[in-house]
Structures are given as C-alpha cells and as structure tokens.
Write a protein that binds this DNA or RNA. Structure first.
Ligand SMILES: [Zn+2]
Ligand SMILES: [Zn+2]
Ligand SMILES: [Zn+2]
Ligand SMILES: [Zn+2]
Lengths: 155, 155
DNA sequence: TATAGGACCTCTAGTCACCAGAGGTTCAAG
DNA sequence: CTTGAACCTCTGGTGACTAGAGGTCCTATA
C-alpha cells in the first residue's frame, strides 16, 4: 500500500528482533498495533521499523523496557530539552559500573579459589572447605550474594 | 529433639536465606524434606543447616542451581578426586570474565555517549541520534544485544 | 491454664524479557 | 491452482525466587 509495507517477518529481518518478540512488544504496548491485511496479518510502515530499531538499540545498551518506554516518550517530543535522556544514560552507566565492580570482586575470589586448590580428594578440597565454612562470613551472617541489581544487565 | 532442632525461621536466621526460599529449595529438591512436628512444621538438624550454608555460599559465588546441585553431589562423595570441582569453578570464572568484558565494552559505549552529549533539544540530541541510526551496525544487522549469557550472573 | 500474637503452613500468582510449540489460516510464487 | 513458507492466536515454560492471602500452630507470659 503506502510507500513502505513490511510484514512482521520483514521487520524481524531488518531489525534482528524475533517475530515472537515483536508481537510481545505489541502486547506490552512498546509497539503500537499496526494495521492488518484482510487476512489479519500485520503490515508495518517505515515509522514502525524506525521505532523497532530504536528499541533494539536501546535494549542493546541494556536499558530496561521501562527505560526504553521512557526514551521513546522523550524522543517523541523533539522540541523539549533532552536532560532526561542524559539522566537516563548516566543512570544506566552507574548501573553498569556497579555490576562491573561486583563481578570483578567475584572474579578475584573465584580466581583465589582456583589457585589455592591443589587437587586431591574431595575430603581435603579447599574449595569445598571454603564453601562449607562460613567463619569468614560477616557476623549476623548476611549472605548478600549477588543482588538482582548486580546480577542482571537488562536482558 | 535431637541435639539440634531448628525451625525454618532459625535456619533462615543462621544462613541469611529467606524462609520462602528455603521452602522453594525443598520443592526443587535442593534441600531434602525435613521431619515435621505434630502440627506439621518443619524441624531441621545440623546437617540441614550445613547444607543450606553450603548452598548459600555457592550461590554467592554465582553458581547456578544446576551447578550447586552438582557441587552438592560431589561434596557428598568425600573419597572421590575433586577434579570436577576444579572444572566447575574454572567454568564459572570464565563466565564471569566474559560478563566483565561485555559490560566493560558497554560501559565504554555509554560513556562515549554521555561525553559526546552537549545538551540542547531532543531533535539535535546525539544520544537519540545514536539510538535511531543504525548505519554503524553490522550488515545483516544482527543486534547481538546482550546475550543471556552476558547479561546474568546467577541470581 | 488461658490467651495473644508471632511464626508457621499451603497455594497462587507475579517478576523480567522473552521463546517454543501446537494447531490452524493466509499469502505469494510457480 | 497448488504448494509450502510465513503468518495467526493461545498456552506454557524459563531462572530463581518473592509476595500475599487465608488459615493453623507454638510458646511465653499473666
Ligand atoms: Zn579440590
Ligand atoms: Zn556464611
Ligand atoms: Zn541530548
Ligand atoms: Zn542497528
């Protein structure tokens, strides 16, 4: 019909986002419901393609869907100042930095574990020992573990 | 009754693992079902406490529940050689390192984004621009994004 | 010993961001 | 017109929990 006329599969090919995911984005309101053919199949225009690409890129930066929603809203108001975007990106950067530092500590601990390990039998294994013993744990014994904040990065 | 006799809440306090999580571990077979009081409440012994602590520590290292299961099985055979543990830890270390490198790349990109940003109006915002444009994306346009592997770290 | 209230019980459903599959319909090339 | 790839909806699953409803039990104090 109009200049551009993509099926959902076309959109998937152009954006690298799976068909099922595009439909999912529609159900959660990230993508607007497109018009349909007489046979009930989705047909998208260039605008939808751009929008989906924007989403794909934002997700690749690890923004949550909440944040993506926010970004889309902002992008839809081109005459407003863009401070909020700045804030969103800065926030995301902090998240990522925190995750990196948490994971770096973890890496060091794992690496220690591996290096103090000299093989042998399970009974004498230092790794098992380390996992069994919590005398080194903080009092009150909070097993912080990996917080959700630390553990995930957006996908 | 026997030497040690903990309620589920006691276990939670001693290990830092929430009551609901302990019950969850039981349903998925990580913790064996303990005996009950006449009134149907769980009563644990020292063995259960140790096991739960082991689990807590392993989870804090970011091992998946699958891996924890594996570790528990190994720990239950103290006369066997402990190579498998070595392998499990090494595997985990590689995972963590991969995540760190992925996140480090991401951090750099976000940081770039922030620094090439000089405020103003959304229409001219470089961040929005970067998110909208995919001329810099690889041909075939695979939006790798963050793979699940990259994105999570065990919790 | 009676009672108050904190701790416990089960079960369901929600989280995040999708993905897989079943079972059926439509579209487009040949 | 036929074929088969692509589309449709709907359901359920993923990992590792967490929250809450609605009810029962345990135990310390008066
Ligand atoms: Zn060992
Ligand atoms: Zn501990
Ligand atoms: Zn801007
Ligand atoms: Zn792109």
């Amino acid at each position: 019909m109009v200049p551009s006329d993509y099926s959902i599969g076309d959109l998937a090919r152009h954006t690298g986002i799976k068909v099922a995911t595009i439909r999912y984005y529609e159900t959660v309101g990230l993508m607007p419901p497109p018009p349909r053919t007489e046979g009930n199949q989705r047909r998208y225009g260039k605008g939808a393609l751009d929008r989906l690409n924007f989403i794909a890129h934002a997700r690749a930066f690890g923004f949550s869907m909440e944040a993506v929603r926010h970004l889309l809203t902002i992008a839809a108001h081109p005459e407003q100042p863009c401070e909020d975007i700045d804030a969103l990106v800065a926030e995301r950067l902090v998240e990522v930095e925190m995750k990196i530092s948490g994971l770096t500590r973890l890496r060091d601990e794992l690496s220690d574990l591996l290096h103090t390990h000299d093989g042998g039998v399970v009974r004498e294994c230092r790794i098992i020992e380390a996992l069994s013993d919590h005398s080194a744990c903080p009092p009150g014994h909070k097993h912080h573990g990996l917080t959700a904040e630390l553990a995930t990065v957006g996908k």
